[in-house]
């Protein structure tokens, strides 16, 4: 049940109102009996068993929970009695009783309750209630992360191709940077200035090329999943969930591609140096750590950048349009 209760105490008073026939007639004034739910009462033992199992003791201590529930139980009993009497109209004011109840009646009593939607959302609802809705739609990071891992694993072939754009760009960056670092360590600072400028230019070009490449792949990857996006929106996903999923997925991809790219780039640099029979590298371990870090950050950022625009675009599409697309 969705409602927040501000006072558990009032829960004792409300059901007594519910028992008044006057109230029942008021609800029936329009001539349309309002059914709020169907009830199958549980035996007392079952209720007690459920009470024990619901005690999570999150904020209240055990006694408080038990006391609170005992009070609620009294209140809810009356509702059950009322309903089992089959008095007309069925389910008088049960919503009112429930509104004041902190305990999930549906769970404890096995009562399926359909609340009037108008009391929860839309212009007629209480503004506080409308704001509370925002917390009732969620995609926890853990779940999103697992979904992304799964999604990457299933599409590993295509992901590898997308990732290779970043991977190669980063490998190039790592290799060039390490070469520069080695030169600096071996030859000192002289003559390196001009070289550095040229290298920066090269690196920027390489990374730009790889961003354009992965943007294209990401566009395709998003377009391929328009229908999935539309479906998720039908199931209650916010636009931000869609973006979140793509950001995590592309971030993971970029991180891995950056990491492996750095390893490959630096590894190759060493191999090439060794083949040229250069064995004095100076102490570049600090530089290597720096390059590794930059590579991972760069890879992640570039990959997320490439994915976020198409994902955002796709998330904003009306669900119907997203579902219609056939790719």
């Amino acid at each position: 049940m969705a409602d927040d209760s501000d006072s558990t105490g009032s829960g004792i008073d409300e059901p007594e109102d519910a028992g008044q026939p006057a109230e029942g007639e008021a609800a029936n004034a329009s001539g349309t009996p309002v059914r709020h739910g169907r009830v199958e009462a549980l035996s007392e033992e079952e209720i007690r068993a459920r009470l024990v199992s619901t005690d999570s003791g999150a904020t209240l201590d055990h006694d408080e929970v038990v006391q609170g529930m005992a009070r609620e139980l009294g209140a809810q009993r009356q509702v059950i009695d009322l309903l089992s009497d089959q008095r007309e109209p069925e389910g008088v004011n049960i919503a009112k009783v429930l509104d004041s109840s902190a305990v999930d009646l549906e769970f404890i009593m096995g009562v399926a309750v359909t609340q009037e939607t108008a009391t929860i959302i839309g212009g007629k609802a209480d503004p506080a209630q409308r704001r509370a809705i925002r917390d009732q739609i969620s995609l926890p990071f853990n779940t999103a992360f697992k979904m992304c891992l799964r999604s990457i694993w299933i599409r590993i072939g295509r992901v590898a191709i997308t990732g290779s754009g970043i991977f190669l760009g980063i490998a190039f960056y790592a290799s060039v940077s390490l070469t520069a670092a080695i030169m600096r360590a071996v030859a000192g600072a002289e003559g390196v200035e001009q070289e550095t400028a040229r290298q920066t230019w090269l690196i920027v070009m390489a990374l730009m090329v790889s961003v354009v490449g992965i943007s294209n792949s990401m566009l395709m990857a998003v377009a391929e999943r328009f229908r999935e996006i539309g479906t998720m929106k039908c199931l209650g996903a916010l636009d931000s969930f869609i973006v979140k999923l793509f950001v995590i997925e592309s971030g993971l991809l970029g991180l891995l591609a950056g990491l492996f790219g750095a390893v490959l780039g630096m590894g190759l640099t060493y191999v090439i140096k060794a083949m040229k029979l250069v064995f004095s590298f100076g102490d570049v371990s600090g530089d290597m750590l720096r390059i590794m870090l930059y590579s991972v950050v760069l890879g992640t950022v570039l990959s997320v950048l490439a994915a976020i625009l198409p994902a955002n675009q796709a998330a904003k599409m009306p669900a119907a349009a997203a579902l219609r697309t056939d790719v």
């Binding site: 009037e116 939607t117 959302i121 009732q136 739609i137 929106k233 199931l235 636009d239």
Partner: peptide, 25 residues
């Protein structure tokens, strides 16, 4: 359920789709 859909914000619409409506295609 007597709620005007046009008045709903993105969260409420998502809430409605999530809990009140089931879709089959």
């Amino acid at each position: 359920d007597e709620v005007d859909m046009a008045q709903l914000d993105a969260y409420e619409l998502a809430w409605l789709r999530c809990r009140k409506i089931g879709y089959i295609f």
